[in-house]
Design a protein around this nucleic acid. Structure first.
Lengths: 344, 344
DNA sequence: TATGGCGCTGTGAGCGTTCACAGTAGAGAA
DNA sequence: TTCTCTACTGTGAACGCTCACAGCGCCATA
């Protein structure tokens, strides 16, 4: 039975570039040229090929293409956070969707990889080297060696958030954490608060560090003393926020405002304050960070700092594709926006 | 310059099966056999090849393999929901992570595809046919033609939730919505509630339909009349829950319990009740569905029905891989669990 | 001793592309 | 007219792997 005849039963073999060439009355080479931009192809041939492609329903076999070009035309979204944060943090949704959509516009599929355990990490690293053109990395903890490893292996890479402790050769896209924190603290000060505390993020993350820095600077600018008792460490989780608020109330009962480094922690802070009988915002103003869905779910709704996640994802993809195309690594910092609601 | 020498500058060409064969002193065929299960290979050769693989750092070129086998050894996670639901619903996180991890255990990468717009849908369909071994489909709305199209194209497919209106030949994995609803309503009845309302999910989703059915049945079993004024349609969103609760209070001010078909809607219901001055659970008991993070974020914390998302994702992957392996489509229904907290 | 079978091994072909190269025709310049 | 250049086209050779097949030696059986 000849190859073109095996159509009757089972799944029909998909058309190849050969079929298109025959149908269009040209050679493989011409079809290939049409597929790759159509340069040096006569108008007549171009039209014939495009029509043949439509008639046959041809789609390029990406495996064959990748085999020879060495490119895979796919990109990995690599998450090395421990799973808790991934579960809880709604920002990942936005980021992931944004990246997927931005890549789709270039016809590039996104491979989702999660490296929670060491075994997963090794498996993913093995896969990435040679099977993926670039990596979108979400991994804020500085202890994480993944960024360095990938960079060393020569894999194009863009991190979400500034990778702490890496050399300057790794691309990243981040919100302007420091100025976001400044905006919030300045706002709290302007609304008349004078004992402004903060619940920080983990201080091995750039977000944690920069938001705290913004807090300190702004206090100084406003002429307020920086009281270390008002600085309570947190871990970005709701439970962490609850505990931090309890500690804060114990250390500084006279506190009248808290800048919390994430909305999720702010939810926890709110529930501790409620149990302690403090009214928000009358007794204590609470400011969050992220403008995640958690901000709307909180009672009262959170005044917070919006991170431009849609722009972050778009920029990550843009920078990554540029880098795959041979450009140098780049750092992009995007402005935040203060969102006024009920908690401050 | 010979091929093996171009190591000095730039990225070194990765080792091929040839390199491994030479290193191990055997032929390509033997290496290939080792790679594919090691049948009909002598212990000595097996050991030599494995050692050579380790020494050279060889990993199989999946493009070359796919080109000849016709398999891609990858799976798509296709989301056809409108984006709002994806953003808001924390269950997707759990589902997505579960699927990714379960697939990773089989060394199969997950391609994330989002078909919000018609153009995206077409692009994804074109990609899927021929570039992916199977599809994990998240698309509960019955108007969605994707399941039918994929099924017709002969692509192995597992849906999350029973696809409404499809023929019975599509595999799916779902929580036992009906019995989950029954458990909740029975519990409300047993705690002494007599005017039990419900806020439904969208009635073009199987979850919406089945949870409502469970509600109706249980009321009847408990000897309570089914009062249509107590049945308010919802859309799974927080705002929808707020509106539904307002309507409910207007239609039936004497209501003393609400079974809400999702936690997110239940959050909305709680905030309307709070504004209306109704105490939960004293005046009105509120029961949710999902046991999503929203249940813990609510005040009071939600009594709800847990959907076993971790098991759902594991089963989806299991069923899909079985189907890729040639087995028949299958339907899996997994039990839910009542979670007691403060709202009822 | 001949025969068959079995376990293991190597080899050639081919999967569907792209790429480099060679070749053709036609237009313009000499 | 002849030559050169340009625009276009076709062809063979890869890319790295798997598959089918043939061949080898060895043992058990006749």
């Amino acid at each position: 039975m000849s190859r073109t005849e095996q159509n009757g039963a089972g799944r029909r073999r998909p058309p190849t570039i050969h079929d298109v060439a025959r149908e269009a009355g040209v050679s493989r080479g011409t079809v290939s040229r049409v597929l790759n931009g159509g340069h040096n192809v006569s108008p007549a041939a171009l039209e014939a090929v495009q029509s043949a492609i439509r008639r046959t329903g041809y789609t390029v076999n990406r495996h064959a293409r990748s085999l020879i070009t060495g490119r895979s035309d796919s990109v990995a979204f690599l998450l090395t956070e421990p799973q808790e944060r991934f579960f809880e943090d709604p920002n990942f949704n936005v980021l992931l969707r944004g990246c997927t959509t931005a890549l789709a516009a270039h016809d590039i599929p996104l491979l989702l990889m999660i490296a929670g355990t060491e075994a997963e990490r090794r498996r993913n690293m093995r896969y990435i080297a040679g099977h993926v053109d670039g990596v979108l990395l979400v991994s804020s903890h500085s202890g994480d060696p993944v960024a360095a490893q990938l960079h060393e292996a020569g894999v194009p890479l863009v991190a979400c958030g500034k990778p702490l402790g890496q050399g300057s050769r790794v691309s990243y896209v981040a919100a302007d954490d420091r100025n976001g924190a400044r905006d919030m603290v300045r706002f709290l000060h302007e609304s008349g608060r004078r004992r402004i505390a903060t619940v920080t993020g983990p201080l091995d993350t750039p977000g944690g560090v920069d938001r705290l820095a913004g807090y300190r600077e702004t206090l100084a600018e406003c002429g307020l003393p920086v009281d270390e008792a008002l600085i309570v460490p947190g871990d970005y989780s709701r439970a962490g926020g609850e505990a931090a608020a309890a500690l804060l109330l114990e250390r500084a009962p006279d506190v009248d405002a808290v800048f919390v480094a994430s909305d999720l922690m702010a939810q926890g802070v709110l529930s501790t304050l409620e149990r302690a009988g403090r009214r928000v915002p009358q007794d204590i103003a609470v400011g969050g960070f992220d403008d995640s869905p958690a901000a709307l779910g909180a009672r009262p709704e959170l005044t917070t700092v919006r991170q431009p996640w849609d722009r972050i994802s778009a920029e990550m993809v843009r920078v990554l594709l540029a880098q795959i195309g041979g450009e140098d690594p780049a750092a992009v910092i995007l402005p935040t926006e203060l969102v006024h609601r009920d908690s401050a």
